[in-house]
Amino acid sequence: MSIQHFRVALIPFFAAFCLPVFAHPETLVKVKDAEDQLGARVGYIELDLNSGKILESFRPEERFPMMSTFKVLLCGAVLSRVDAGQEQLGRRIHYSQNDLVEYSPVTEKHLTDGMTVRELCSAAITMSDNTAANLLLTTIGGPKELTAFLHNMGDHVTRLDRWEPELNEAIPNDERDTTMPAAMATTLRKLLTGELLTLASRQQLIDWMEADKVAGPLLRSALPAGWFIADKSGAGERGSRGIIAALGPDGKPSRIVVIYTTGSQATMDERNRQIAEIGASLIKHW
């Protein structure tokens, strides 16, 4: 067993022997301040990774656009098919120029040779490549099948209805392509620590998230040296922004954090800054 596999296998073990965790309302004060600064709703939840206990939450059962955070769930569904012998990570998928959609920095470079399922998941999570996500959605049967996968996990809230990039439209009061912070946090925890996926697939999923290259201005910008984070960000229309993450000190994750916002007129930089400040408060009061 590799060191990384050992780390993920012992996530519940280490967490069980940690000192009790206590909620700190100071972080919620910052979440509410972010709402004021952005002029928009902000949803927040913080779960203990081992027990699933909610440590703090704000608007945990209000719907927010998922945006690209759905790509972690998508690759979880792909990995479940791999575990069941219905898919192979090494299978190569070929596609054409007509398949390319807006923001496809990886797939646009491989029109000639195609990409493997493993490479597509890596591109979808680490670079948020939209064509990679659409190609992977095709392998599982489309958005409705991802929703069905989530329902089978016990998540009857999260739903995907459309493809990239239309799913980022974020129309107010439109339930399409949305989740709730509580539902997303619980589902992410199941994917990373539950028995739904094999140990190898859980490790692969967290490795992809740990290698995320496009979430630097968010929670990662607030992390002290030595902290662990595996995350996936999302951005959408109407001032929408979000991030889902597993993080913790001492090089291992111990909490799940989900943050979503929508309806702001603020710039992307300002949305990023507010999420980073929430992260800084979380870490300060850990």
Score class of each variant (00 low, 15 high):
residue 25 P to H: 15
residue 26 E to A: 13
residue 26 E to R: 09
residue 27 T to N: 04
residue 32 K to G: 09
residue 32 K to A: 15
residue 36 D to Y: 11
residue 36 D to M: 15
residue 41 R to I: 09
residue 41 R to F: 08
residue 51 S to V: 07
residue 52 G to V: 04
residue 53 K to R: 15
residue 53 K to P: 05
residue 57 S to Y: 09
residue 61 E to T: 13
residue 62 E to W: 06
residue 63 R to H: 09
residue 63 R to V: 07
residue 64 F to P: 01
residue 65 P to K: 02
residue 68 S to D: 00
residue 78 V to L: 09
residue 84 A to M: 13
residue 86 Q to D: 15
residue 91 R to G: 05
residue 92 R to F: 10
residue 100 L to E: 03
residue 105 P to I: 07
residue 107 T to Y: 02
residue 109 K to T: 13
residue 111 L to D: 07
residue 115 M to E: 02
residue 117 V to L: 13
residue 120 L to G: 03
residue 122 S to H: 13
residue 124 A to S: 10
residue 125 I to C: 08
residue 131 T to R: 04
residue 133 A to Y: 00
residue 136 L to D: 01
residue 136 L to S: 01
residue 136 L to H: 00
residue 137 L to S: 06
residue 138 T to N: 15
residue 144 K to D: 11
residue 147 T to D: 08
residue 148 A to T: 13
residue 148 A to L: 15
residue 150 L to D: 02
residue 151 H to C: 10
residue 151 H to W: 13
residue 154 G to I: 03
residue 157 V to N: 10
residue 157 V to L: 10
residue 159 R to G: 05
residue 161 D to S: 07
residue 161 D to N: 08
residue 161 D to Y: 05
residue 165 P to N: 08
residue 168 N to C: 07
residue 168 N to M: 00
residue 169 E to R: 11
residue 170 A to R: 08
residue 170 A to Q: 07
residue 171 I to Y: 15
residue 171 I to T: 15
residue 172 P to C: 11
residue 173 N to Y: 13
residue 174 D to S: 06
residue 174 D to Y: 03
residue 176 R to L: 08
residue 181 P to C: 08
residue 184 M to S: 02
residue 185 A to K: 00
residue 186 T to N: 15
residue 199 L to G: 13
residue 201 S to G: 12
residue 202 R to N: 07
residue 204 Q to W: 07
residue 208 W to C: 03
residue 214 V to P: 05
residue 217 P to I: 07
residue 217 P to H: 10
residue 218 L to V: 04
residue 218 L to R: 02
residue 222 A to Q: 10
residue 227 W to V: 00
residue 227 W to D: 00
residue 228 F to D: 04
residue 229 I to P: 01
residue 229 I to D: 00
residue 229 I to S: 00
residue 230 A to H: 02
residue 232 K to Y: 02
residue 237 E to Q: 15
residue 238 R to W: 12
residue 243 I to R: 00
residue 244 I to D: 04
residue 244 I to V: 15
residue 248 G to F: 02
residue 248 G to T: 00
residue 249 P to N: 09
residue 250 D to G: 13
residue 253 P to H: 10
residue 253 P to L: 10
residue 254 S to G: 13
residue 261 T to R: 05
residue 268 M to C: 07
residue 283 I to K: 05
residue 284 K to I: 09
residue 285 H to D: 07
